[in-house]
Amino acid sequence: MNIDFNKNNDGLVPAIIQDAITKKVLMLGYMNQEAYAKTIETGKVTFYSRTKNRLWTKGEESGNFLNLVSIKNDCDQDTLLIKVNPVGPTCHKGTDTCWEETNEQSFGFLSELEDVIKSRREDANSKKSYVASLFEAGINKIAQKVGEEAVEIVIEAKDDNEALFLNEGADLLFHYLILLQAKGYTLKDIVAVLQGRHK
Rank of each mutant, 00 (worst) to 15 (best):
Q18G: 03
Q18V: 07
Q18L: 03
Q18F: 01
D19M: 12
D19N: 15
D19A: 13
D19H: 11
D19V: 08
A20G: 15
A20C: 15
A20D: 14
I21Y: 15
I21P: 03
T22A: 15
T22E: 15
T22N: 15
T22I: 13
T22G: 15
T22H: 14
K23Y: 07
K23Q: 09
K24C: 04
K24R: 04
K24H: 02
K24Y: 01
L26S: 14
M27P: 07
M27R: 04
M27S: 11
M27I: 05
M27D: 11
G29Y: 02
G29Q: 02
G29I: 02
Y30G: 14
Y30Q: 10
Y30E: 11
Y30A: 13
M31I: 08
M31E: 11
N32L: 05
N32V: 09
N32S: 13
Q33I: 02
Q33S: 04
Q33D: 03
Q33A: 05
Q33F: 01
Q33N: 04
E34N: 10
E34T: 12
A35S: 14
A35C: 12
A35K: 07
Y36R: 00
Y36A: 00
Y36H: 01
Y36T: 00
Y36N: 00
A37C: 11
K38T: 15
T39F: 03
T39K: 04
T39P: 01
I40R: 13
E41T: 07
E41G: 05
T42E: 13
G43V: 12
G43C: 11
K44T: 03
K44R: 15
V45A: 11
V45Y: 08
Y48C: 09
Y48M: 04
S49W: 05
R50N: 02
T51G: 09
T51S: 14
K52P: 04
K52E: 14
N53R: 06
N53K: 10
R54K: 06
R54C: 03
L55A: 12
L55W: 10
L55P: 15
L55F: 14
W56Y: 12
W56I: 06
W56Q: 08
T57Y: 00
T57R: 06
K58P: 09
K58M: 09
K58Y: 04
G59Q: 11
G59M: 09
G59T: 10
G59K: 12
G59N: 13
E60I: 12
E60Y: 12
E61A: 05
S62G: 08
G63K: 00
G63T: 00
G63F: 00
G63E: 01
G63N: 02
N64Y: 00
F65G: 00
F65E: 02
F65C: 00
F65W: 01
F65L: 00
L66T: 08
L66C: 06
L66R: 09
N67C: 10
N67Y: 09
N67V: 09
N67K: 11
L68E: 08
L68D: 04
L68S: 05
L68W: 03
L68I: 04
L68M: 10
N73R: 01
N73L: 02
N73C: 03
C75A: 09
C75G: 14
D76T: 06
D76Y: 08
